[in-house]
Design a protein around this nucleic acid. Structure first.
Length: 478
RNA sequence: AGCGGGGUGGAGCAGUAGUAGCUCGCCAGGCUCAUAACCUGGAGGUCGGGGGUGCAAGUCCCUCCCCCGCAACCA
């Protein structure tokens, strides 16, 4: 058990705008799993990062009249401040412009693919949409413009390197069917199998280096400086380059293959098709599991600026605090399907579950303890309930949280049923025993809360040990 | 056109054949340790429509309607 390892990754995020609630969800979900495995004594490594070699970032920067690399640093520092506010315990933040940490590994991976005969050069001409960073077909155009971006595409003639993805349709299918590559939930697994049934097409793997790109942006294709890697070999590679794939050092040897790679449903295809194909081609083991979550909607609709239903994570954090936001994301959003959030629903959950539920329970038990016990309890560590650990093993963080809140309800009932506040007046010894038992149960809740609400967990456990009622944990909101 | 997800008491959800559950809200009672909290009880659903299979169907089959998403280089 002690030498078990756990490697978990989030996707790397696009730095062309600040992060939204969806990113906060991916990251919080991953963090809960990472903290859980640390709690279980496993050697854990948690990677997140940013996907920086993108045209969109360059455009976003120029729109604001900023130097791309300066703009990039600003945005990425906002990423880390959001992660800090969410109490994300990542071990490493990989940036794909990092020429020491990322580039050598990406280039090594490219080399392996080339060695396997899976990289070839092909001319391509067509209409290129800058917004898509891709070629689009004439029939997609509306009034000669890209319907998504409203811009006129340019006619481009390029030579690119391609990756023989088509070759890997069957091998990937076999890995998924054998369970070597697990895809959670089942519905996503089915989806990707259906896609594989249709067969995969080769994908373009490079772009000619743009004259206006700043130095330091874009990983050069080995042996051809006129080309930079396109997103696949660049971005997806981060999961291994961050561990030092370039020289296959200790970190890499210890942690790869990943135990779980967390991602949103929009990038399933890339992670379940292109990424495994690259790894097979390079002779690198596949991640054990992909955890594919849904989107967060608001009022049943995809959040969008035009609908005006966007809820910013910063806004919730400012009003309710870190652990409350983590709580909502963990318990009220499913790790497998789309989840919904509204300000109203958040407030209701906050009041019911945190203020009236957890917060009030801590207050009533700790008041009894502080007033009647001579000293704090010294609870012995005990096993976690199976329903809790089983749920977390299956990535069902919401179910695991349910287990905690079932206990909270039970404890509230227990206080009413055993009435220690009454017993203490007539039979002090028995009253104290009842109260001590309550603090021990509460301590168990504190321990289970650790992955979900790290600060709250700590406050509760310390309160019990020190026999001191803490201030209100969650103030009721009207 | 296709693919995927979904339509269950006021709201949000669980429930893949055998007396319809949970949370929030609402009503009544209890308690007084607690953050006007907590506990108990109650009202409220012909489980989107129609047809079928079964002794028995939210639960299986067919069909129709409605909502949401995806549709390969877009977190």
């Amino acid at each position: 058990m002690a030498d078990k390892k756990f490697y978990i990754t989030t996707p790397i995020f696009y730095p062309n705008a600040k992060l939204h609630l969806g990113h906060a969800y991916t990251t919080t979900l991953s963090d809960i799993l990472a903290r859980y495995h640390r709690l279980m004594g496993e050697k854990t490594y948690f990677l997140t990062g940013s996907d920086e070699n993108t045209q969109k970032m360059v455009e976003a920067a120029r729109k604001e009249g900023k130097e791309p690399l300066v703009f990039l640093d600003e945005i990425v520092s906002k990423f880390s401040s959001l992660f800090k506010e969410l109490d994300i315990s990542y071990d490493q933040f990989i940036r794909t412009t990092d020429q020491k940490a990322h580039w050598p590994g990406a280039q090594k991976l490219w080399g392996k693919l080339a060695d396997s005969g899976d990289i070839y050069k092909k001319g391509y001409e067509g209409l290129y949409c800058v917004g898509h960073e891709a070629f689009i077909t004439e029939k997609d155009l509306v009034d000669g413009k890209c319907p998504d971006h409203g811009t006129v595409p340019e006619f481009l003639k390029e030579e690119n390197y391609f990756f023989k993805l088509s070759k890997y349709t069957e091998p990937i299918k076999a890995k998924i069917l054998s369970g070597e590559l697990e895809i959670c939930p089942q519905s996503r697994r089915n989806e990707i199998l259906a896609l594989l049934e249709e067969g995969l097409e080769d994908v373009s793997f490079s772009r000619p280096r743009k004259a206006d790109w700043p130095q330091g942006l874009g990983v050069p294709v080995p042996g051809d400086n006129s080309q930079v890697m396109y997103v696949w070999c660049d971005a997806l590679a981060n999961y291994i380059t961050a561990l030092g794939y370039a020289n296959e050092g200790d970190l890499y040897k210890t942690f790869w293959p990943a135990n779980v790679q967390v991602l949103g449903k929009d990038i399933l295809r890339f992670h379940a098709a292109i990424w495994p194909a690259m790894l097979i081609s390079a002779g690198v083991p596949l991640p054990k599991a992909l955890l594919v979550h849904g989107f967060i909607t608001s009022g049943g609709k995809k959040m969008s600026k035009t609908l005006g239903n966007v809820i910013d994570p910063e806004e919730l954090l400012a009003e309710y605090g870190t652990d409350a936001v983590r709580y909502f994301l963990a318990r009220h959003i499913s790790p497998f399907e789309d989840g919904d959030i509204t300000r109203e629903a958040f407030k209701d959950a906050y009041n019911a579950d945190l203020a009236n539920g957890l917060g009030n329970l801590v207050a009533r038990i700790m008041k009894l303890a502080e007033d009647n016990l001579e000293r704090g309890a010294r609870p012995e560590p005990e096993e976690f309930p199976h329903e809790y650990t089983d749920a977390l093993k299956k990535f069902e963080v919401n179910k695991a949280a349910d287990v905690i809140w079932e206990r909270i309800k039970l404890l509230d009932q227990q206080i009413t049923d055993t009435a220690p506040f009454k017993v203490i007046k007539t039979n002090p010894e028995e009253g104290k025993e009842l109260i001590l038992a309550l603090t021990q149960e509460l301590y168990g809740i504190g321990r289970m809360l650790n992955p979900f609400m790290p600060t709250t967990s700590k406050i509760i456990k310390e309160a019990i040990v020190n026999n001191k009622k803490p201030g209100n944990l969650f103030v009721r909101k009207e």
